[in-house]
Design a protein around this nucleic acid. Structure first.
Lengths: 195, 195
DNA sequence: AGGTAAACATACTAATTGGTATGTCAAGTT
DNA sequence: AACTTGACATACCAATTAGTATGTTTACCT
């Protein structure tokens, strides 16, 4: 059983995932948790700082650990990214997950224009993910696994964009199959990089 | 000069683009317009029906006309999609547009889990866009412009996903250059389809 | 035992918000 | 001229919401 603070973080993370940050109602979340606003405002000074903590302690670690193997694993890039893509696939295993979409993508759409604190945090996470992919691509070029005739920076951003967009389109279509198609295309793209 | 109803639609479209649907405050929008809520609720019964009208009369026509040339133009697919991609590029011409992102993507992230009326409308637009691309790809395969060894349905979804994701990542990075990179990659992908 | 501080619960408030009820006025219609 | 209707403006309300002020209880420290 988690301590109260962690519970607050996770329940509000789910609420944000479902309703967006602006759609979260502190009253309702604490009511569902069986606690009161006293507890909430004991741990977090206000709604935005709660949101920041959710990014720092839940969202960022999750996504960064997801892509980390690209930088450090001994296996080939292709194999590692296949595994990452499959972890994304299992992430959208249920239809409900398809409808709710990617938490990071959702936040990235909603918050940067509205709040600086969110903006810098989402910038850092995205930037870090891109770096991880780019580093992996460069390693694969150096090792001879991949050709040299592509721009690792560009391709890294393209991976990220396609995955995030895949969540978005799958959500619009309410179709897990759509996300699978995007993953499939990304695997083909990866194969095309091989030398 | 537009009539009042059209003005309401366009101003609220901008407000949604900036704040999200849940973030739009009717009071503020009408105040900025120099009208009153009397006018707003004279033309629209409630906030959601206003949102529906914005999709039906502004968002959907815009995106469908954007992709329409793929289905009907006499030119080759590659040339047409280059033009479409360039229209997207000019759409994110200013830094502000980068920060605000793609109106369709934004709405697709925010609304489908919250409201059925939005969900069906956003489904229709996305579905229709995919059809337009898929039809174009099939025509290109029949004409011999493109190879036959790819799945037009999949590739069509991939185009859409990458573009929408490009908006999202460019927004997170606050960088127009990121979107340009995605467009560049999509052009290369298009060239790879040629026979 | 007495004191202190963390961890909450209870009760309340001030501001906001979507929506409504009602009024006004000008342009047609009969 | 009397009447209706569309196009708004004004004034108002009930509900919601983030946040606060003030208990209360438990664990720990001395």
């Amino acid at each position: 059983m988690l301590d109260t603070r962690s519970q607050i973080l996770h329940k509000n993370f789910e609420a944000i995932h479902r309703n967006g940050f602006q759609g979260v109602r502190a009253d309702k979340v604490v009511a569902e948790m069986g606690i009161t606003k006293g507890a909430l405002y004991h741990y977090f000074p206000n709604k935005f700082d709660l949101g920041y903590a959710i990014i720092d302690e839940i969202v960022a670690p999750h996504y960064l650990s997801l892509w980390q193997p690209l930088e450090h694993a001994q296996k080939g890039f292709a194999q590692v990214i296949y595994e990452v893509l499959d972890r994304y696939r299992s992430f959208v295993a249920t239809e409900e997950q398809v409808i709710l979409g990617c938490p990071l993508t959702n936040l990235t759409q909603e918050m940067p224009p509205l709040d600086e604190g969110f903006r810098v945090r989402l910038y850092r996470v995205t930037s870090r993910m891109q770096q991880q992919i780019e580093t992996g691509l460069k390693k694969a070029q150096l090792s001879g696994e991949f050709k040299l005739d592509f721009n690792p920076t560009q391709v890294a951003f393209f991976y990220l964009s396609s995955i995030e967009g895949g969540f978005s389109v799958a959500k619009a279509m309410q179709s897990r199959a759509v996300f699978e198609m995007v993953v499939s295309q990304l695997k083909q793209l990866t194969d095309g990089l091989k030398s």
